[in-house]
Amino acid sequence: MMKTYGLIGYPLSKSFSQKYFTEKFEKENLKARYLNFPIASIDEFPELLTHHPYIGGLNVTIPYKEKVIQYLDDLDPVSKEVGAVNVIKVDWTNPKEPKLTGYNSDIIGFTRSIQPLLKDHHKKALILGTGGAAKAAAYGLKSLNIESKYVSRTPKGDNQISYQSLDKNTIEENTVIVNTTPLGMYGNMDAKPDIPYQYCGNNHLFFDLVYNPEVTAFLKAGQEQGAVIKNGLEMLHLQAEGAWEIWNK
């Protein structure tokens, strides 16, 4: 039986993962396939394993990186601390009750991708968004000794601030700015997070998890102020390979 892997999320109109793994399987002559599972509600998740009993592993994307945890049997220590999962390993040792374990390869991809661009003055960061990807970015930045705060439209807690509160001092102090929102992705390419770009400069590093288009409106605005920019494509490659390692270890 051909091993099946896949991606859950909604919507899944543009899936990097499916293209990446399909090409990988062909190139490496692996008897496997990668399917998209666009589920409109996380409540549909349990049915996947019923209908596809040979799934070896799953990726998880927006908006289920946190919601899927309730259906898992175990979490690795990192995803447990972060509170978000983007990789699920399925163990079929007991065919009647497969064991589902959650991992987070977003952290691997993000950390390895941003690290080469960091300079000594990059000590504090703003993370735009508060979802599962934002939590992975925060964990990665912490491992690189960079303090971070979340920026949210509806901030909650001490470590979240509002977009309206972003003033000159805040922007100049936080020289790493990471966009984890879907704003600016293909289909809505003119959109960008509402921050005061005019206070950014050549000390800033802009990192966007969006990879299509190559230069988002967010990155372009940063670049025009002299910031170093990077999109999420390399991160995606690195997290995908991280997922493959997890499924096959």
Rank of each mutant, 00 (worst) to 15 (best):
K220V: 00
E81G: 00
S148E: 07
L126C: 15
Y150E: 06
A240M: 08
A136C: 03
Y150T: 11
Y211K: 07
E172R: 06
P182S: 11
K99I: 08
L144T: 13
Y103R: 06
L100T: 01
P193K: 13
L75I: 13
Q164Y: 08
S79P: 05
V176M: 01
T22I: 00
F45V: 11
T170Y: 08
Q115I: 02
A217L: 10
A32M: 07
N169K: 14
P53F: 08
N104A: 03
Q115D: 13
Y64K: 03
G226A: 07
K142E: 05
V78E: 14
L128F: 13
P11W: 06
N202E: 09
Y186F: 06
G102H: 04
P155W: 15
M235Y: 00
F37I: 05
E147I: 01
S79N: 08
Q225N: 07
F45C: 10
I69G: 08
G184R: 02
P196I: 02
R153M: 10
I171L: 11
A227G: 06
M1G: 04
T61S: 07
K31I: 00
S15K: 04
I62A: 08
Y10H: 15
Y163E: 11
N104G: 01
A138H: 10
F207W: 06
V87L: 01
Y54A: 11
T181Q: 15
G109I: 01
V60E: 05
T180S: 12
